[in-house]
Design a protein around this nucleic acid. Sequence first.
DNA 1: AACAAATTGCAACAATGTTGCAATTTAAAA
DNA 2: TTTTAAATTGCAACATTGTTGCAATTTGTT
Lengths: 138, 138
Amino acid sequence: MDEAVEHILKRNLLSVTDSRRKILELFFNSQGALSHGDIEKKAGEKFDRVTIYRTLQAFLEKGIIHNIPTAENSVLYALCKDDCTEGHHHDNHVHFICNECGNTICLENVSIPSVKLPKGFISSQVDVVVSGVCKDCK
Amino acid sequence: MDEAVEHILKRNLLSVTDSRRKILELFFNSQGALSHGDIEKKAGEKFDRVTIYRTLQAFLEKGIIHNIPTAENSVLYALCKDDCTEGHHHDNHVHFICNECGNTICLENVSIPSVKLPKGFISSQVDVVVSGVCKDCK
DNA sequence: AACAAATTGCAACAATGTTGCAATTTAAAA
DNA sequence: TTTTAAATTGCAACATTGTTGCAATTTGTT
């Protein structure tokens, strides 16, 4: 695991630091998406809040994670698939928010349906977020 | 306009007050969705922030407005179609965020595509947010 | 080991959201 | 129209979330 985490950081030209390693591990060990708050709690109060913000920002820019829109006022982050590169994300999957357990997960195998927009609109990204009950809570 | 606004409030068993009337008018006069901050600015510093929060909350609960998930950390609100009733929304349309003008609008005529979920998942709501360039900014 | 560059933590701040309570306003009664 | 109870507002105080500058530390490299 450590190997993989370090490799990802290096591949993205990010120096390997305690916080980056730890936060990236949290994503690997987590089933679903994480909010800033989740990370703050799970990291065991070891890192400054500012560091977490900056780390998430760096991961986003490098395409290591992507964010998930929610209707509540919390931004969620999740690991990107391998082929995400800086500035060009391929998160062509649907996100699912379970109203029971509260988890948000990436449905990697459910691809984004095509949306036909009115004349004149140009689409650059489509986010689909489904909420309901996940298979574990049913 | 005032007539319509008052009617909507009464129909939803909300007493007619200055702030509710004003905020509802803002939604009618606005092209797209509004954030709490937008309303605070547009209302001309007439209402307390707390009142705006509580008014939006009331409108949400009554189904007068719905909220739109975004990947940034701002919650957007927009008017619901007429047939939204308390606790049961029919916002079966796609939301579009323009990266040029920043406006978020409801594409009333673009309906939500169906999403086929893996076995065991139950869908209760599907949100689709498309970002790109709107027809006015093209 | 030594150095430059990057990263972190701290402090201070700004923005956003919440709660309790007294004062005001609304809606409906007399 | 006046009165009255209930609902709503505004204030104050607070909690949470996010941002910025800068000195101290750590990283990657020579």
